[in-house]
């Protein structure tokens, strides 16, 4: 049951639910910039406090906000361990055969893991408080200028919004495929570079097959419901972005500015 809840829209009347979808998407993009600039403990503390506040404003429990991160726990640990043990450093803390534990490697691993976790939490909050139709309409609005040079903005918006929604699902399935390969004896965390890369290669074909199955099911469902391309869709009248959403955007811009300064 919980498995299906990852990133799924939860209807509600909270502050974030009522916020304009275009402002929410813009805020999401600003926050991604903030994550890119975050690289200090103080910066991460600011981001986590802000994420907790956003989760509260969205009426989501800590458990539900962290569920996607928790599910990807083994994968995140793997990334941390690989970065810690294989980072090329001139001053390793511990060295044995091909393994080299270094402070820089651990910092690099922690940075990657924390950034992925923050983006997962942010995209979870966005998709839980924004319906797929609203998200698509928001992307479409941001891509609107493309229409003036003859590009199909509606189609591109639809493809990008589906791509973003597919990421947590395919990540979970990839993790399951990885576990299945470990059960068959694959070694992802040890061996030479060539051996570790070779262990990853058998995962590529199953990942494509399972992803294309998902795509096939979704395309069939959309066609069965009469979807014939974004061009033929009707859209509700666009409203102006309200003051509350503007304030929220400003707050996100401030958080991003703080990350740049820190």
């Amino acid at each position: 049951m919980d498995r299906g809840m990852t990133g799924k829209y939860v209807p509600g009347e909270t502050l974030l639910h009522r916020m304009d979808e275009r402002a929410k998407l813009l805020a999401f993009l600003i926050m991604i910039c903030a994550v890119i600039f975050t690289d200090s403990p103080a910066g991460y503390a600011v981001m986590f406090v802000f994420m907790a506040a956003l989760g509260k404003a969205a009426g989501l429990s800590v458990n539900s906000v962290l569920s996607s991160v928790r599910r990807l726990g083994p994968f995140l640990i793997l990334i941390f361990v690989m970065n810690s043990l294989f980072y090329t450093s001139e001053d390793p803390i511990w060295h044995f055969l091909i393994f080299s534990l270094s402070r820089e490697g651990m910092i690099q691993g922690a940075n990657v893991v924390l950034r992925i976790a923050l983006v997962i939490v942010m995209s979870g909050i966005l998709t839980r408080t924004t319906s797929p139709m609203e998200l698509m309409s928001a992307i479409e609005s941001l891509l609107h200028p493309l229409r003036y040079i003859g590009l199909p903005a509606e189609e591109i918006a639809m493809i990008l919004s589906i791509a973003i929604q597919f990421i947590p699902t395919i990540l979970e399935e990839s993790d399951e495929i990885r576990k299945a390969q470990i059960a068959r004896g694959a070694r992802f965390e040890s061996g030479k570079l060539r051996e570790r890369a070779m262990a990853l290669l058998p995962m590529i074909v199953p990942i494509f097959i399972s992803s294309f199955k998902r795509a096939d099911e979704l395309a069939e469902a959309m066609e069965a419901r009469g979807y014939r391309g974004a061009k033929n869709r009707t859209a509700k009248e666009k409203k102006k972005i309200d003051l509350r959403s503007v304030v929220m955007l400003l707050v996100c811009a401030c958080v991003c500015a703080v990350q740049i300064v820190i």
């Binding site: 589906i162 791509a163 990421i167 990942i207 795509a215 066609e223």
Partner: peptide, 16 residues
Amino acid sequence: VKKSIICAVCIALCYI
């Protein structure tokens, strides 16, 4: 429609 969805999946795989 199917081409669009497959394109979306490939974009997601570019990240994954």
